[in-house]
Design a protein around this nucleic acid. Structure first.
Length: 424
DNA sequence: TCTGGGGTCCTAGGACCC
DNA sequence: TCTGGGGTCCTAGGACCC
């Protein structure tokens, strides 16, 4: 049964997406090292990667590696528009498309051969159409499983197609470096390297107990199934998010009550507004405080009933942030604040359970003003729908952000379901 | 003079219940 | 009467992904 399936899973991945869009929009950037971002490199063109520049690298370091590097601010609306166009091309071949980020998707073309040809032919057709109609290079991997299709597309880059026949899977994977596998990051790579495991073949040859002892049960089992290509995951065309969050980097700041009030007010309002727009509420509130040196702590709290009110979320976030600070009295500066809500439920379900509707206190057990807060939020949401999100807000929320991150970037991240760009 | 914003999943200990 | 096993939920932290 090991060879039951055909290679019908495709993974399509746009090459150096943000930077390629910039080169498409401004021909003076073509063929030149380009980085998208300001303080930090969000994406680099292939010409920039040749200098060792990578996503996530500080801007000063990138400039040092390549003095000719052209930094561009980023056309986030264009990334969204062009990314959507590419997905539309994929959907012309099958409805079984799973978008996993702004620039990347899986699809299953089983059963479409009589319409569009073999999976390999479909991959080639997708690449031609995206190049001709949109002007971008997309690499495609074709295999029997999602994981292997993704590895194949990585080895196909730049601007290529790799098809792995079912009877050559292990032979294909054996010499590849372990870090091509999903789930192998810095830490796992270092652990594997320390015992001489460098290729997927090395990993496949390592015993289960050794793997589990080194990496833990879950990671060990997962890597085992990936290395032997017994990954069972199917294409998921829809998925509900499990949490909604927002964060702001602050530079180095002393955690004054004014800073916390304005920042947490802004973040909580963003998160609560997105929850309300999605018709959802959540019971668990988590706040993260990051100190200098990337040390960070989280504090969370689970309510007996879910909330989506901006003001309530602001107050709870502040309590959690102060608790985190109180536990770390030696930290005098903070560099980031984050607010997240999880344990989400649909409000339609909530209203079935609580038939009182408007009158129900959705803010917090034990507080009296829940319905008033609900009404204020609804009014604010309605005004923002018509006039934009800056048209109105709570007094504590109307603070100058410092302009560190463009609003368009945050919105792109939100719409991408949290999964966007930044591919090395 | 090591940074951005958005997510997922796993682990481990403790509380609590049957 | 104090020893057992199993399950769920909550909290905090960490690895990883795009």
């Amino acid at each position: 049964m090991a060879r039951a399936g055909e290679a019908t899973i495709l993974h399509a991945d746009l090459d150096a997406f943000y930077a390629s869009v910039e080169q498409l929009l401004d021909s003076s950037l073509s063929g030149r090292p380009v980085a998208v971002g300001e303080g930090v490199v969000l994406a680099a063109s292939y010409e920039a990667k040749a200098f060792g520049i990578r996503a996530g690298m500080p801007g000063w370091m990138a400039r040092r590696l390549c003095p000719d590097l052209r930094f561009v601010g980023g056309h986030f609306d264009e990334y969204q528009r062009l990314g959507d166009q590419v997905i539309d091309v994929l959907r012309d071949f099958t409805p079984l498309v799973e978008r996993i980020s702004i620039d990347e998707a899986f699809m299953d073309v089983a059963g479409t051969e009589h319409l569009f040809g073999s999976p390999g032919e479909i991959g080639a057709a997708i690449r031609r159409r995206v190049r001709r109609e949109i002007g971008l290079a997309v690499s495609v991997g074709v295999a029997r499983t999602k994981h292997l299709a993704k590895i194949a597309s990585q080895t196909a880059k730049p601007d290529g197609l790799v098809l792995v026949e079912p009877d050559r899977e292990l032979e294909f994977m054996r010499p590849l470096p372990v870090e091509l596998m999903w789930g192998v990051g810095h830490v796992t790579l270092a652990r594997l390297t320390s015992v001489g495991i460098r290729t997927i073949g090395d990993l496949a040859a390592t015993s289960d107990p050794v793997l589990r002892r080194m990496l833990g049960r879950a990671v060990g089992n997962k890597l085992r199934s990936l290395a032997t290509n017994t990954d069972p995951r199917r294409i998921e065309t829809t998925r509900q998010v499990a949490s909604v969050g927002a964060q702001s980097a602050l530079g180095r700041r002393r955690p004054t009550s004014g800073l916390l009030r304005s920042t947490l007010g802004y973040l909580a309002d963003r998160v609560a507004g997105r929850l309300r727009a999605a018709g959802r509420s959540g019971r668990t509130i988590t706040v993260r405080v990051r100190f200098t040196g990337l040390r960070s702590v989280t504090r969370s709290l689970t309510l007996s009933s879910p909330i989506s009110a901006s003001l309530t979320l602001t107050e709870l976030s502040a309590e959690l942030a102060w608790a985190a600070l109180a536990d770390h009295p030696r930290e005098h500066e903070i560099t980031l604040l984050a607010v997240s809500v999880s344990q989400l439920v649909d409000d339609s379900i909530l209203q079935l359970q609580l038939p009182l509707g408007l009158g129900v206190d959705r803010s917090r057990p034990g507080t009296a003003s829940g319905s008033a807060r609900w009404a204020v939020d609804r009014a604010v949401d309605a005004i923002r729908d018509r006039f934009g999100r800056d048209a109105v807000g709570y007094a504590t929320v109307m603070f100058s952000e410092g302009g560190r991150v463009p609003e368009a970037f945050r919105q792109l991240a939100e719409r991408s379901g949290g999964r966007l760009g930044g591919q090395g």
